[in-house]
């Protein structure tokens, strides 16, 4: 069932959702938000595309396969823990840089960890949704 209303709304909402997901990711450091919800919101954006235009169109917009997102996310989270080790501190020690960036604040290992969570959640949710929907479309 194709709905014109949903398709038109998706075109407007899609970039907003992605932007909002990144906002949530960075906000999560001190306030409610974070990589998990951020990843879920980003996944919603792509899910809307898949619902209105089919999985193939959503895959075209997605920068990498969901599997690659999961793998990269896991490695990013892992790397955030290794920074502490490399600095001679225990694993997962939170370390921050000295520079302060606009919006992001001081970049440090927690935000890298959260970015890893973001990618992993996005990848897992999309993998599940795409697989189910492709079975349906076939």
């Amino acid at each position: 069932m194709r709905s014109v209303i949903l398709a038109t709304a998706t075109r407007v909402v899609f970039p907003l959702l992605l932007l909002f997901s990144v906002f949530l990711l960075f906000r999560g450091h001190n306030e409610p938000g974070g990589g998990f919800v951020g990843g879920l919101v980003a996944a919603t954006a792509y899910a809307l595309l898949a619902l209105t235009g089919g999985v193939a169109s959503a895959r075209r917009v997605l920068p990498a396969r969901p599997e690659v997102l999961i793998g990269t996310g896991l490695l990013a989270a892992l790397a955030s823990g290794l920074v502490g080790l490399a600095a001679g501190r225990p694993f997962m020690t939170g370390l921050w840089g000295d520079v302060s960036l606009p919006v992001v604040g001081k970049p440090g290992t927690p935000v890298l960890f959260d970015a890893g969570v973001y990618l992993t959640v996005l990848g897992v949710v999309l993998l599940i949704l795409f697989t189910l929907q492709e079975e349906d479309e076939a």
Partner: peptide
């Protein structure tokens, strides 16, 4: 963990 991530990426 690293091996799991690598085997996903190499799938």
């Amino acid at each position: 963990l690293a091996t799991a991530a690598a085997t996903i990426l190499l799938a």
